[in-house]
């Protein structure tokens, strides 16, 4: 369960000025729920995501995930928290272009020094699910857009996260790939994962598997 309590986030701009990105936000996301945050760019959707993933700390208020006050964690522990709980799907994939598909998917697991047999099985499973078996050793920059997207999703899932966060996942995709992504997303809904999507893509607006849609405007929930 994810909980944002009275969260305000300000960003410093320059020496003195600051921008209020979020104003007194309260949000609950249940286990297994799929939530869509929608609103124009700059409305504060991404900020909410980064607070949940503890990439950022709220100026006021707190963020609690599975009973853990992640907004209070020191930098090192936020990383550990993400490693164990969060799967990230970024806008523009954010893969490392000069590594192979396989190496990209391994990246989140490297610090925990996994057992290599286990890892091999896990990779086989993931690459099969996303029909990428033949592309494992191919450098990411030589893959097609669709393939890159699937690699990015595979990377998000490799650590069996309980929370999947997708930030504008279709912003850089054409219609066909966007629909493909939505198909994959649908399959990910299994009752264990909470999925939080931030997007202003109308394709998401009337999908029945999305449990809740939340409108964000100027840093406030409408």
């Amino acid at each position: 369960m994810i909980e944002l309590k009275n969260v305000t986030k300000e960003f410093k701009v320059g020496a003195k000025d600051k921008v209020v990105a979020l104003k007194d936000i309260n949000l609950h996301v249940q286990k297994g729920e799929i939530v869509l945050l929608k609103g124009p760019s700059g409305s504060g959707k991404s900020t909410i995501l980064s607070l949940i993933a503890a990439l950022n700390k709220p100026t006021i208020g707190e963020v609690i995930v599975d009973g853990k006050r992640v907004s209070k964690l020191a930098d090192n522990f936020t990383s550990l928290f993400r490693r164990e709980n969060i799967g990230f799907i970024f806008q523009r994939y954010n893969l490392i272009p000069s590594l192979s598909a396989k190496e990209n998917v391994i990246v989140p697991l490297i610090p925990s020094n996994p057992d290599s047999n286990w890892l091999e099985d896990r990779l086989q499973e993931l690459f099969q699910n996303f029909s990428l078996e033949s592309k494992m050793e191919v450098m990411v920059k030589n893959l097609s857009g669709g393939e890159q997207q699937r690699v990015a999703i595979a990377r998000a899932l490799v650590n069996n996260p309980s929370i999947i966060i997708a930030d504008e996942p279709t912003a850089n995709l054409d219609k066909k790939l966007s629909l493909e992504f939505i198909e994959i997303l649908k399959k990910l809904k299994n009752g264990h994962n909470s999925i939080i999507i931030a997007s202003h893509d109308p394709l998401f607006f009337d999908l029945d598997f999305i449990d809740r849609q939340i409108d964000i405007h100027n840093g406030e929930i409408l």
């Binding site: 709220p58 209070k72 930098d75």
Partner: peptide, 17 residues
Amino acid sequence: DLNSTTPLQYKLEKQSF
């Protein structure tokens, strides 16, 4: 002060490494 969310604490956390 681990409970503080000031930029100073944030900086110190990093510097501790």
